[in-house]
């Protein structure tokens, strides 16, 4: 009969109306500033620079190779290489970025910078509350704002950070083993040299001209 469906519909909406006051799990809304959902591990929003240890300058992994600057599709990264060098995590002297700026308003969160970085120096952050009242300088993040510790990285992306740590540790161990072998070889050579003593040291190999 005419009107039957409307009565059914009215009953349904009434049930929803009353139910939303009685059953809390009907309301799926998370009231954002007071309540928040835990961030997903795969979440990503904006890149940051990883440093090891406590000193952002000393532990900075970035060697200012500028690959990310060249690869960035919207070109929001600006890097200036330093004149001097500082030792990296294996102790090898490397350049470091004198200036490293990323424009938040231009970045499109594509993660290409992270993928191209050979030094595991730039990673994606989950922080999303980046609004600012200054729309020019406030949205241009410099090196100090971008630098975040490896502990923070482990916290926001545990699985990914563990893989990176393992890779870096392996590399470091390899480098250490190599230096150790070098030192041993050198020591052995020195000992051999000391034993024979008489023949003069062999001439160094000619330096290749290329």
């Amino acid at each position: 009969m005419l009107g039957e469906g409307i009565i059914k519909g009215l009953a349904e909406t009434a049930r929803n109306f009353v139910g939303s006051y009685v059953e809390a799990d009907r309301l799926t809304t998370v009231q954002y500033p007071e309540e928040r959902l835990p961030t997903k591990e795969a979440a990503r929003n904006f890149p940051f620079l990883v440093f090891d240890g406590n000193d952002a300058h000393a532990g900075m992994r970035c060697v200012a190779c500028q690959i990310c600057e060249k690869e960035c599709p919207p070109q929001c990264i600006y890097i200036e290489k330093s004149k001097d060098k500082k030792p990296d995590y294996v102790g090898k002297p490397q350049f470091y970025p004198k200036i490293f700026d990323i424009d938040v308003s231009v970045c499109m969160s594509c993660q290409i910078c992270v993928e191209v970085c050979p030094f595991e120096a730039i990673k994606m952050d989950t922080e999303f509350e980046l609004s600012n009242t200054d729309r020019f300088a406030g949205l241009l993040f410099d090196k100090h704002q971008l630098a975040k510790s490896n502990e923070y990285y482990r916290k926001i992306h545990p699985a990914e950070a563990a893989a990176v740590d393992g890779r870096l540790a392996a590399e470091k161990a390899k480098a250490e083993a190599k230096t150790k072998a070098d030192v041993e070889a050198k020591a052995k050579a020195a000992a051999a040299a000391a034993k024979t003593a008489a023949p003069p040291p062999p001439k160094p190999a000619p330096i290749p001209t290329t």
Partner: peptide, 10 residues
């Protein structure tokens, strides 16, 4: 508010 509650919103 009422229409929100009908649709299970706040």
């Amino acid at each position: 508010k009422a229409i929100g509650r009908i649709q299970n919103r706040y």
